[in-house]
C-alpha cells in the first residue's frame, strides 16, 4: 500500500496552480487527501503529477458577500462546521457535516475535495445540490461559474475540465428561519451513507409552503433533486403535507447495488429518509417560529 511514483508539486498561489495545471499531463490535485491518499496507496490511481494545494491560502475561507456566502474550496470541513456564519445561514450544511467522517478526517477533509471527488454517498455535494450552489472554476480561459445542476456529470465525474481547478462554492442562503432537515443511514457513524436525504422549506405567514428543496443521495450515482415532488409540495400547508407521494418519488429512482446492499433496500431507505428529513425540516421551522 505505497503509492506509485509521482512527481510532487506545491504551488503557493492560484496563478502557480493554474500554470502547473496548464503545463502538466495526467496531474491530480491533492486537497485534504481523504479520498485521494487511500486511492493512491491502493494504486487505484497512478497520476504522474500530484499538485498539493494545501499551501494556497487564498483558496480557503468562508466569506459573506453581497449575494450570499462563498466558501473556498480548500476550507476544512471542521472549520465549516464550527463557523457561526454557516450555522446561522446555511444550517443544513452544518447539520450534514456532523455525518461526514470523524473529527480527525474533518480536520483535513475539504469541501472542495469532496465536491470534486463526487462519491455518490458524499454529504457535501448533496447539500450543494439541495442549496443550488454555484461552483466557481478557474482555468486557462479564466473563471466560470457552474450551476449545481450542471456540476454532476455522473459517477465520480464533475464538470471540471482537465486544466481547471475548483476555487470556491457560492451559496444563496434561504430566508432566515427556513426549515431544514437531514437524514442518512450508515452502518457505522462516519461511514459513507447507504442513502441519505435532505429537505429545505420556506413558508408564508399562514404556514403555506412557498419554496422547497427535496433531495436524496447515495441512491443513484449523483444526488437527485425530486423536482416534481417539490413542485407538488409548494402551496401545501406545513401541518398537512401529503407525505406518500414524496416517499413514492424517492422510491421511483434507480438505485445502485453493492456487495452489502440491494437496490430494493436502498429504495426502501430513500423513502424512509426523505420522510424523516422532511419531518425534521418541519419541526425546525416550528422551532424557529
Amino acid at each position: 500500500m505505497k503509492a506509485p511514483p509521482f512527481q510532487y508539486h506545491r504551488p503557493h498561489t492560484r496563478e502557480e496552480l493554474g500554470a502547473l495545471l496548464a503545463s502538466l499531463d495526467n496531474a491530480k490535485i491533492l486537497a485534504g487527501g481523504q479520498s485521494l491518499m487511500p486511492m493512491l496507496n491502493l494504486r487505484v490511481l497512478a497520476p504522474d503529477h500530484l499538485i498539493d494545494i494545501n499551501r494556497v491560502p487564498e483558496l480557503a475561507g468562508i466569506r459573506e458577500t453581497v449575494d450570499g456566502i462563498e466558501i473556498g474550496a480548500m476550507t476544512r470541513q471542521a472549520d465549516i462546521l464550527a463557523s457561526p456564519i454557516i450555522q446561522a445561514r446555511l444550517p443544513l450544511l452544518a447539520r450534514a457535516l456532523e455525518h461526514v467522517g470523524h473529527i480527525q478526517t474533518r480536520s483535513r477533509g475539504t469541501i472542495g475535495g469532496s465536491c470534486c471527488h463526487l462519491d455518490p454517498s458524499a454529504e457535501q455535494p448533496a447539500i450543494c445540490a439541495a442549496l443550488d450552489a454555484e461552483f466557481v472554476a478557474t482555468g486557462p480561459n479564466g473563471r466560470r461559474v457552474i450551476p449545481a445542476a450542471d456540476w454532476f456529470q455522473g459517477l465520480l465525474q464533475s464538470a471540471l475540465e482537465d486544466q481547471e481547478f475548483l476555487e470556491a462554492l457560492r451559496f444563496k442562503p434561504w430566508a432566515k428561519g427556513h426549515g431544514y432537515g437531514f437524514a442518512e443511514y450508515a452502518r457505522r457513524h462516519g461511514d459513507f451513507a447507504i442513502s441519505g436525504a435532505a429537505a429545505l422549506l420556506e413558508v408564508d405567514g399562514r404556514g403555506q409552503i412557498t419554496r422547497t428543496a427535496l433531495l436524496v443521495f447515495g441512491v443513484e450515482p449523483a444526488p437527485r433533486r425530486l423536482y416534481d415532488a417539490e413542485a407538488a409540495l409548494v402551496g401545501q400547508i406545513i401541518r398537512e403535507i401529503a407525505l406518500a407521494p414524496i416517499i413514492d418519488a424517492a422510491r421511483a429512482l434507480d438505485p445502485m447495488e453493492d456487495v452489502h446492499v440491494t437496490a430494493d433496500y436502498r429504495r426502501h431507505l430513500a423513502g424512509i429518509l426523505i420522510g424523516r428529513a422532511l419531518r425534521e425540516a418541519c419541526s425546525s421551522l416550528e422551532r424557529s417560529q
Binding site: 487511500p38 491502493l42 457505522r188 457513524h189 462516519g190 461511514d191 456487495v259 452489502h260
Partner: peptide, 22 residues
C-alpha cells in the same frame, strides 16, 4: 465477502465493517 470465483470483495475498511466505538 467473496464472489463465486473466490475473489475477496471486502478488502478495505470502507467495505469490511469493523465495529467502531460509536
Amino acid at each position: 465477502i467473496y464472489d463465486e470465483a473466490g475473489q475477496p470483495l471486502t478488502t478495505t475498511y470502507a467495505d469490511y465493517f469493523l465495529p467502531l466505538a460509536s
